[in-house]
Nucleic acid binder design. Structure first.
Lengths: 232, 232
DNA sequence: CGATGTTTTGATAAGGCTCAACTAAGGTGG
DNA sequence: CCACCTTAGTTGAGCCTTATCAAAACATCG
């Protein structure tokens, strides 16, 4: 797909993870709002530009949303898997939107969040879709918070990689035990509230226990049943 | 207000924290959906009854939402302050809704979440309001997760009580430094991923440092500026 | 008044952090 | 092609935070 192409309905509908929440009419509206697919270089932060609250459709590549704090600590809100939609809550009413960074080169289409909001006010179809999307996102956030609250570091890392596996498989089901996961240990630590060092040791234990093996940019699941048990 | 009364538009509109997201028409629809105000005894779990996904308007009293896990650990998702609306995300698409418990005797009005969903599909006004509500809830969840990720126990406890103060003040602004907060240390621990013992010690340190003083069912803020600095 | 749940305190253990050094893997420029 | 730089991952030692266990002091409520 060339960089100047605009995402069309067919492409959007094939994304799988979130498109199920919307009617075809709403998806067409989203497609009509989307800008051209543009590439974003590795490690550069996606610029905020002129749009007040940009929403992104991620075509290829991985990114993440984060907040920096004055004390130097960083908090990674979430990682963005190819095929997902990013920033809807921020567009619909959030005050301070997180910043976006990339984990690999990305190809994204940009929408004006304010436009999406306006559409939501006039089209019941669109609003209903957004509601469902936001509700499910909330459930997932709640689950992740549960993991932070009651899991040890070892369990948290396992649970996170299991969640990412499910998200990746949702878009392109392969049934295989290896999946792309170009997420650095630093980012994992900033998501889970752990130091890089401890993330590293947890991953080593998971590998030693023959549960899963994380390499530079992918993960191999060695014992799915045990993984589900640990990260439940 | 008698137990058999039904919440009317005036009452609903006076709640303050969430009603601002909805148009008057949508608030009227919500009012028309609401059942009578019923009392719920202390410590008893609000029964799920026949409704698939109940939504509650909390008129008086405090409650909380939680999950129990097979290993005996418990995770408190959130505390519910009087005047708030509870369970919207669960009604709009969440899979497993958390269970509800009470911290004090409560008076609540019940709505059928499925009805609310149906309304949302037909009324753009209602859907827009729900979107904004869900988006703001997501922001707050995200903030709370940030607190879990980058704060120490001491800071987490401070940040939680500051958040609760703001929520209570939102409904009934008093400008005073004492606010009702009938939340047990156990529940605080289950929200923040801390043991009761450590919550206790953190509260003691906050009192010793003259930041705030938590008593059985209220909290006195002694140094608002320092509290904001700690719980930022 | 006992019976239950909540808060408090002490002592000890474990989990996770920090610091520091070292390896491995890409670049990049000469 | 190699020397150098940067970034990510790895490992060890020691310390600090927080959990666990145990028990006492308080409340609250039939």
């Amino acid at each position: 797909m060339h960089a100047a192409d605009r995402p069309n309905l067919g492409w959007i509908a094939s994304q799988g993870r979130w498109t199920g929440f919307f009617s075809n009419a709403a998806l067409e509206q989203i497609a009509s709002l989307a800008g051209p697919l543009v590439e974003v270089g590795t490690r550069s932060v996606v610029p905020d530009g002129a749009m007040r609250q940009p929403v992104y459709l991620v075509a290829e590549g991985w990114g993440y949303a984060y907040h920096d704090f004055p004390d130097g600590r960083r908090y990674v809100v979430d990682v963005h898997v190819p095929g997902e939609i990013v920033g809807v809550a921020a567009a619909c009413g959030s005050r301070r939107a997180p910043r976006l960074g990339t984990l690999t080169p990305m190809t994204v289409a940009r929408l004006d969040g304010a436009e999406l909001c306006r559409l939501q006010a006039s089209s019941a179809d669109m609003a209903a879709g957004l509601c469902r999307l936001l509700a499910v996102e909330q459930t997932e956030l709640t689950e992740q918070m549960g993991s932070l609250v009651r899991h040890t570091a070892y369990e948290r890392v396992a649970a996170l990689l299991l969640r990412l596996y499910r998200r990746v498989e949702k878009r392109t089901p392969t049934g295989r035990t290896v999946f792309a996961c170009p997420v650095s240990q630093q980012v994992i630590g900033d998501m889970l509230g752990l130091s890089v060092v401890h993330v590293n040791r947890s991953l080593r234990r998971l590998a030693d226990d023959r549960i899963l093996h994380k390499r530079a940019s992918d993960v191999e699941i060695l014992d799915a049943a045990a993984l589900r048990r640990i990260g439940a």
